[in-house]
Amino acid sequence: MPNEEYNDVEGGLGIIARRVIAYIVLILLTFLCLFWFYLLFINSTRSHAELNRGFTLMPSKYLVQNFNNVIHGTQPIMTGMRNSFLVAALCAILSTYFSAMTAYAIHVYDFKAKKAIFTFILAVMMIPTQVTALGFIKLIGNLKLMNSFIPLIVPSIAAPATFYYMKQYMESALPHAIVEAARIDGSSEWRTFNTISLPIMKPAIAVQMIFTFVANWNNYFTPALVLSKDNMKTLPILIAQLRAADFLKFDMGQVYVTIALSIAPVIIVYLFLSRSIVGGVAVGSVKG
């Protein structure tokens, strides 16, 4: 009679040994993932003099002072945070709303160009924004939109990947019967989309809002090409500036606090929503 334990012992390593190996590897990887952020935290709490003295794993007591130095320093970090937040939040709202609308058009209606448009969007989904950057900045220059947030925010309305996620979600969550029932009740198409379909899409919208927010918060390539005025710059541009400046002249405590400030918001959001974020990763990319 084949029972589980018997087979496990038979097959080389027993289940206990495999479990031990798995935990050791997982703990090592956890260490590898968190170590850098722990160092970042420790070094944010140390003064420049302490940092020059060498490596330690113990926190010091200069966190508040470093933070104050950053706020009153030469780099406009707080303005950068505000700019980054503004761009990322607006992108998240526009991208999810209009992607849901585009997905709704393809999901609910039947029209001639439907298949062609759907195929087109899927085909261009993978094309990176960098390859059109040259034409993009020429266009932005012609439209006199350099040093404006518009070229960073408005293009997020057309987000093929977000659209694809919404479309996938609609297939399982938005039956046509609901739309038809709304029609019989006399609801206009516009109203059906906004007050009946969107609420059903809430979970998908929430997940995609987070991903779009994070992607734009972290985005460096395009903002760096568009924004050159100090009071318009987003955080990644300021980080690059910090790197380009004469490094040794900087108060290292401030450098660490600046890095910490630019990644902290995302980590805090992640701590609260990690379950739905991790859950959302697989759904959009591969069909189960």
């Binding site: 709704y104 029209f111 059109t132 034409g135 408005v154 516009w190």
Partner: peptide
């Protein structure tokens, strides 16, 4: 009559895509 709404709902995506992706691609 309903299905024309498919086109209407596609307008934002198509317009933005043409302006900020298609024109830059051709120009590149």
């Amino acid at each position: 009559k309903y299905n024309k709404w498919g086109y209407i709902f596609l307008i934002p995506f198509v317009v933005v895509y043409l302006i900020f992706q298609m024109i830059p691609l051709i120009s590149t």
